[in-house]
């Protein structure tokens, strides 16, 4: 997918709005680059279009008001590495992507193990025939009582 800009709308507003395609294994390196430039992670989302995931990580520059989105295309069974070691607050967005879309993300810092929203159906935003596809590292679901968070080391 070529680089896309929205020229007409951007003429009246300051700050560019670009989408940059990136491969899944380049994600962590690009995130380090963004952090060194001083950008803040603004949002991360994914969608299921044309039988593949379209994952977007968006970074905002607070001085120039630019907006850069990294776009990753991934298969249903792909595994993405989390950037929560670099940007700690990315954990929330990645937990949500995992729960709503069944996307397999590893090494999340604060992992809710699919119990962020506690939805009964697995991966509710995917079409029904895609929900039961097994992924590379099957994640275990914790016991029904408490979410498995980092509070075990309370001693």
């Amino acid at each position: 997918m070529p680089e896309e800009t929205n020229e007409k709308k951007a003429v009246r507003q300051t700050g560019s709005n670009t989408i940059v395609p990136v491969k899944a294994d380049e994600l962590v390196e690009k995130a380090v680059e963004m952090k060194k430039k001083g950008l803040r992670l603004s949002q991360a989302c994914c969608s299921w279009v044309n039988n593949q995931y379209e994952i977007s990580y968006s970074f905002a520059d607070d001085q120039t008001l630019d907006y850069i989105t990294l776009r990753i295309l991934a298969e249903r069974t792909a595994t993405i590495s989390s950037i929560s070691e670099i940007y700690p607050y990315a954990a929330f967005y990645e937990n949500e992507m995992e729960e709503l879309f069944g996307l397999n993300i590893r090494y999340i810092d604060l992992d809710y193990h699919n119990r962020l929203y506690r939805i009964k159906t697995k991966a509710p935003f995917l079409p029904e025939d895609q929900r039961e596809v097994a992924t590379d590292e099957t994640k275990k679901i914790s016991a029904p009582d408490a979410p498995e968070t980092q509070k075990e080391d309370a001693n």
Binding site: L110, L116, Y117, R118, I119, P124, F125, P147, T149, Q150, K151
Partner: peptide, 12 residues
């Protein structure tokens, strides 16, 4: 430390 837990008003 504070650990947030949301999901009480998730309507999809």
């Amino acid at each position: 430390e504070a650990i947030p837990n949301i999901g009480f008003i998730h309507r999809g």
